[in-house]
């Protein structure tokens, strides 16, 4: 059954199309329909003939309904088109994907591209750890995370906990310890009341401010640099490799350079 089938199909299709539904006798006359039908239909002689002729009669007179149907189709297409246009338009109002927004920040260093191993996550390790980046942006970290629900630390926090916070989607803002108090206050205002953010001084920082998210870093020289807000908007929560419900509380609030373990 199945083997002859495919072979038959091509030949059957050709015949079938012209035939209509495949009746050999009707098929023969059917092929002639377009030509023969109209004259017969108009003349009204078709009655005695095969059923084929009357059908054509109807077809010839059917311009009215066809026009209406066409109009309906045009209207429907118009409505659908408008709907598609509207939804496309509203798509434009939607947010640009965070990766794209992040990539547009000049000076942003993306370690996810350059060092995939560093950002794979789930690398719990106790004790003091070494990091290649200063401040660190990802990699092994202590099991406990630094509390990061909008916490303003006035003392440095251990890297080993802070990196864990980054993994949970926190943006960690660090500043050079000699930054004037009013500038620190500007940074603190970006953190207070905003979950998945934390602020701490970082001794030996090369720039005034350095922002970290899991696998991302941006160093700027002014607390008023607009890229700070763009960094937070693009990467807070988004950069989490554990999704938006990873915890930023019930961790530790350790300060100093020694991790709690």
């Amino acid at each position: 059954m199945s083997t002859p089938g495919p072979e038959r199909v091509p030949s059957t299709v050709k015949v079938g199309k012209t035939t209509g539904q495949g009746k050999p006798p009707t098929g023969g006359s059917g092929a002639n329909r377009p030509g023969g039908s109209r004259p017969t239909g108009k003349g009204g002689k078709g009655k005695g003939r095969k059923p084929v002729t009357p059908v054509k009669v109807a077809g010839a007179r059917n311009w009215g309904p066809i026009a209406v149907a066409g109009l309906v189709v045009v209207i429907a297409v118009g409505i659908i088109g408008w709907g598609v246009f509207a939804s496309v338009k509203s798509d434009k109002q939607k947010a640009v994907p965070w990766e794209e927004r992040a990539a547009a920040i000049s000076g942003l260093v993306n370690f996810r591209e350059t060092n995939p191993d560093l950002v794979k996550g789930s690398q719990h390790k106790s004790g003091v750890l070494k990091y290649e980046q200063t401040p660190p942006v990802a990699g092994e970290h202590n099991p406990a995370w630094e509390n990061c629900n909008g916490v303003v630390y006035t003392e440095p926090v251990p890297n080993e906990h802070a990196v864990h916070s980054l993994e949970h989607g926190a943006v960690w803002i660090t500043y050079r310890p000699d930054l004037p108090a009013d500038q620190v206050a500007t940074l603190a205002a970006k953190v207070e009341g905003k979950e998945k953010t934390m602020l701490s001084p970082f001794p030996g920082l090369s720039n005034a401010v350095s922002l970290q998210a899991w696998g991302y870093q941006l160093k700027v020289d002014s607390v008023d640099d607009p890229r700070i807000d763009e960094f937070i908007k693009s990467l807070r929560v988004n950069a989490s490799i554990e999704g938006p419900t990873a915890l930023c509380d019930r961790g530790v609030s350790v300060t100093g350079s020694t991790p709690q373990g």
């Binding site: 939607k94 965070w98 908007k233």
Partner: peptide
């Protein structure tokens, strides 16, 4: 909604 956790 094709939106992100953070907004402007």
């Amino acid at each position: 909604w094709n939106l992100q956790p953070t907004g402007s």
